[in-house]
């Protein structure tokens, strides 16, 4: 791929994910409840859900592969293709917009030269705009992987990006 991200062609749970999955199995009377969980684990392992992982999850949870791919395509958090190491997600819903989220989107486009849905060539950053993250009182907000960065300003965001570049 042009942006330097590797496609995954073989997959099984990491040791950690396998243990988590076994724990989770005890909590639900029906195995199909584990589909979403298993996909979260896949994503923790490799950052997105490739075809091979869908097959793997189907087999682990006893549902068809089309069930799994239906789920993957329905929920926005499951990445259908590899994403950058840092996924910058800017909320552009009402309250964030009122508090200047447009300027955050511009800062990312300017600094990283990527549009919504794109990844930088070095595979480090992906940018998406997303819907309300329930952080409207401390808006605008940018979610980077699992973390919320609240009351963001373009300056703070650029600093954050510089910091992440060093990592």
């Amino acid at each position: 791929m042009s942006n330097g991200l590797q496609e995954v062609t073989e997959y099984s749970f990491s040791k950690k994910s396998d243990e988590r999955f076994k724990e989770l199995e005890k909590k639900f009377p029906e195995k199909n409840s584990l589909v979403l969980w298993a996909l979260h684990l896949v994503q923790e392992d490799i950052g997105y859900v490739p075809e091979v992982a869908m097959e793997y999850v189907a087999q682990k949870t006893g549902v068809s592969k089309s069930w799994v791919s239906g789920v993957v395509t329905f929920y926005s958090m499951y990445n259908k293709k590899p994403v950058g190491k840092y996924h910058l997600q800017v909320c552009h819903n009402v309250s964030c917009w009122l508090n200047g989220s447009d300027k955050l989107e511009e800062a990312i486009k300017r600094k990283l030269n990527i549009e919504h849905g794109e990844t930088t060539n070095d595979g480090k950053f992906t940018f998406s705009h997303v819907e309300c993250l329930a952080s409207c009182g401390t808006s605008p907000v940018v979610q980077v992987n699992n973390d919320y960065h609240e009351k963001m300003t373009p300056e703070k965001l650029e600093e954050l990006i510089d910091e992440l570049k060093q990592k």
Partner: peptide
């Protein structure tokens, strides 16, 4: 699930 835009109290 708290997703209704403007809502952040359950969090």
């Amino acid at each position: 699930d708290e997703g209704e835009p403007g809502t952040f109290k359950d969090r």
